[in-house]
Amino acid sequence: MSTSNDQNTELYGILAEFRNPKELVDVSKKIVEAGYDKFDTYSPFPIHGIDKAMSLEKSKLGWIVLGHGLLGFTLAISMMYFMAVVDYPLNISGKPFFNAPAWVPITFELTVLLSAFGAVFGMFFLNGLPKHHNPLFNVERFKKATDDGFFVCIEARDSKFHADQVQQLLEAAGATHIEEVYD
């Protein structure tokens, strides 16, 4: 847990801390205006309106869930069709083998189940979780990000990244603390 600048370590980015959600939203706008796109903001809770400030695209999760939902629906119907009509038809009180109204509950449940899997694991996939190694965890101060800290990190892999300019931008925006992060 040290941030010492060894020969072996590589600069990951520059981390700055701000006082409150408002400052974080405003600095996000400035960073986008300055043309950086490999940056992220960190806060203990989702901040209202920061998606616009960071100019985030609409989440693709909805499509993932839709796909899973349709898969669940299809799987449910085809499973029941195979089992009750094709493989082992049973005459139950003279009802049709393909008894669609009676299949509604199970079809519904499996559609919901697979959609929920899609929502949770799709979210993990889009967010790249689980990810237990993160250079930001090398910064002791970053522990505040899950408590009451509001951070922004401009990453070194950004094509416009120059340590001095980034430093200046963050200072001008009113950062209370600026620190280099090494991997």
């Binding site: 967010n127 979780l129 689980p130 237990h132 190694h133």
Partner: peptide, 11 residues
């Protein structure tokens, strides 16, 4: 799972 509070993740 290595949650950081990233707003890209929160989104």
């Amino acid at each position: 799972l290595g949650w950081t509070g990233s707003n890209r993740h929160w989104w």
